[in-house]
Computed example of a mutant assay.
Amino acid sequence: MNVLDKDMAQMLTDSVAAYGRGPLADNHVDALHAQGWLQCSLPESVGGLGFGPDAAAIIAGGLARIGRAEPVSATYLAARLLALVAPESPVARHLGEDGWLVSLVHTGDITFRDGRPTGTARHVHLAKTCLVVADGTLFALPFEAADATMETRVDGTRLATLKLDGLSGEHLADGAALDTALRQVLAETRLVIAAELLAHIDVMLDLTLEHLRTRQQFGQSLGHFQALQHKVVDLYGQALVSRAVLDAAIARAAAGLAPDDLDRAACRARARVNDTAMDMAKGAIQMFGAMGITEESPLAPHIKRVLALVPWLGTSAEMRRHYASIGRVLIQTPSEKDTTA
């Protein structure tokens, strides 16, 4: 995995920002693939860039500012698992070179019977290929072959419930290596989701500050009222702390953490950012007044996206329970452990 240095990170940040300033492409997914962002975690041999969570976080966060981050996090979840356990597979090559979207199913009541998956997969992101993890085995299945029922989330993105009974697919990996890789990928993707959430936090805070500066009440701007000043300062402080926690977690994850340490870092950062995102959404609505809950409000797409993202791969309560179950905090890279042993 290639770790971003300062110059590479700034170059990627500028590239994503420039994309956001330009006209929106007719086919957003094709445009993201053409930039190399959807397949950024795949190895270069199959059309990827070999990047990890630090690059994906920059991409997801930058695109979130213009409300166009879907499906970066979902694709990273699947692509990063392919990079770790099946980097030269046809599925990885189709994603890297042809732009086929891939989604990952790792929960549900799915089992394998006679070498074929059986059961129902819920809340699956739309894709060309579906990766299914069940009974310690990873299979790739054609999405369109499954019996699918569609649903729409609050942010407008579509998910599917798939009945997988009787489908045949391509065996990609199994065993302890798959379990370890899945644990790592889930932790990294939680950080990428947190980066997207943090971008929505920043945008909602900017919109709120602008509203307080320009909205007049009793002959003066709302920003002159002390109660609102205190409220927005509290939200600003939460955002600063969340950014510090998340930036440190992403940097450590990219450098390489032991599994327990990576889980701790991801749980800590995700719980913090989840809470801040919800507090920011509530606070922004409060300070916007009745306008804050309308479809026409500039807050609306960011609040809806926050509501869709916060439960995905772990609510704050779930993250804290998982954190507590791991045990004593010890965040070190493997190299640091070698030198201190």
Rank of each mutant, 00 (worst) to 15 (best):
L191F: 05
V192N: 11
V192W: 13
A194R: 00
A195R: 00
L197C: 05
A199H: 06
I201T: 06
D202R: 11
V203T: 05
V203A: 00
M204I: 04
L205K: 04
L205F: 14
D206H: 10
D206P: 05
T208S: 07
L209R: 12
E210V: 06
H211I: 04
L212I: 07
T214Q: 13
R215V: 05
R215L: 03
Q217H: 14
F218K: 12
G219Q: 13
G219I: 13
S221I: 06
S221H: 14
S221G: 09
L222D: 06
F225L: 15
F225S: 10
A227M: 14
A227K: 12
A227S: 15
L228V: 06
L228C: 09
Q229K: 12
Q229I: 12
V232Y: 01
G237Y: 04
G237R: 07
Q238T: 01
A239Q: 04
A239E: 03
A239I: 02
L240E: 11
V241G: 04
V241N: 07
S242L: 01
S242K: 02
V245M: 06
L246I: 06
L246S: 07
A248Y: 04
A248K: 07
A249I: 00
I250H: 07
A251P: 06
A251N: 11
R252I: 03
A253Y: 09
A253N: 05
A255I: 01
P259R: 00
P259N: 00
D260L: 04
D263L: 06
D263G: 00
D263T: 00
A265E: 00
A265R: 01
A265V: 01
A266S: 10
A269I: 08
R270M: 03
A271R: 06
R272E: 15
V273C: 12
V273F: 09
N274C: 15
D275C: 13
T276N: 08
T276M: 13
A277N: 08
M278V: 15
M280T: 14
M280D: 03
G283Y: 14
Q286P: 07
M287T: 05
M287Q: 08
M287C: 07
F288P: 01
F288K: 01
G289R: 13
G289N: 13
G289F: 15
M291T: 04
G292W: 07
I293G: 08
I293C: 05
S297Y: 12
L299V: 09
P301A: 11
I303T: 12
I303D: 03
I303K: 05
K304V: 02
V306A: 05
V306I: 15
L307W: 14
L307C: 10
A308T: 13
